Amino acid sequence: MKIKKTTIYIILFFIMFFLHFGIWQYLEVGFETTFIRYYLFLTLLFTIVITILSIIKKIYPNYIGFGFIGLVMFKLMIMFLVMKKLNLNEVPNYKVHFVIPYLISLVLETLYAVKLIQTEEVTESPKDEKNQ
């Protein structure tokens, strides 16, 4: 049984969540509701980006990179709005606890987009050879 590449990135995201939650509990930081609400929102954004990139690959496969750049800008804008709503600055060392998971999810999304672009290039090469 072969695991889809989308599933691998989602599993890695949840491993990051459980690892971070374990560290959070070990350090006894508190603010568990803020932590859970932040991760719910981050998970929602992560799944939206992965889903939209998959849709772009099916409809407009040549524009995956542009879609990714637009989604990253959208995600960053939404994160600044939500950070104020969740009062993340009340948590001690909030930059370490909230910026690092955001960056890790961004790296996972980037790797997913790169895989989509690479598979698109592989599928296009035989077509180009047939046309010549």
Rank of each mutant, 00 (worst) to 15 (best):
R37V: 08
P92Y: 06
I50G: 01
L45D: 07
T123N: 12
S54V: 01
T6M: 12
V99R: 02
L106D: 01
E124S: 15
F98I: 05
L86M: 00
L76P: 02
Y9D: 06
T7P: 12
L71S: 10
K127L: 07
T51C: 13
H97A: 01
E120L: 10
P101C: 02
L19M: 03
M73V: 11
I78N: 07
Q118P: 05
F66D: 11
M79A: 14
L86V: 03
E120G: 10
V99K: 03
N89V: 11
M83Q: 12
F80I: 10
E109N: 05
V99T: 14
Y26Q: 11
I69P: 11
Q25R: 14
I36G: 03
I3F: 05
T7F: 11
K84C: 08
I3A: 10
M79G: 09
Q132L: 15
F21E: 12
P126K: 12
R37Q: 13
L108K: 04
K115Q: 06
V82L: 13
G67W: 13
V99N: 07
L103T: 05
V29F: 01
E129Q: 15
T51D: 08
L106C: 00
Y60M: 08
K130T: 14
F68S: 01
M16T: 08
L106W: 05
T6N: 12
Y94A: 08
N89E: 15
T33L: 05
L42I: 00
V82E: 13
K57D: 08
K115C: 02
I104F: 05
P61M: 00
L71E: 07
V91W: 01
S54K: 06
P101L: 02
Y60G: 00
K75T: 12
T7N: 11
V49Q: 09
F18V: 09
L45N: 05
K115H: 11
L44R: 13
T123L: 14
M1H: 04
L86Y: 01
I64A: 02
K4T: 15
L103C: 03
I15W: 07
E32V: 12
I36H: 09
L19A: 13
V96P: 00
K4E: 11
F13E: 01
Q132E: 15
K127E: 06
E129I: 14
T34E: 06
F80S: 13
K84T: 11
L76S: 13
Y38H: 04
I3C: 03
F80R: 10
N93M: 09
M73R: 04
Y60R: 13
M1T: 12
F46W: 04
P92C: 13
P126N: 14
F74R: 06
F80D: 05
P92F: 09
V114F: 15
A113N: 07
A113K: 00
T43Y: 02
P61T: 01
R37F: 12
L111P: 01
K84V: 13
L111V: 04
F41C: 02
F21K: 06
N93D: 02
F41A: 04
H20P: 01
F41M: 11
F98W: 04
L86S: 08
M83Y: 14
L71C: 04
N93G: 10
L40G: 11
P61W: 00
L42D: 01
S105P: 02
G22C: 09
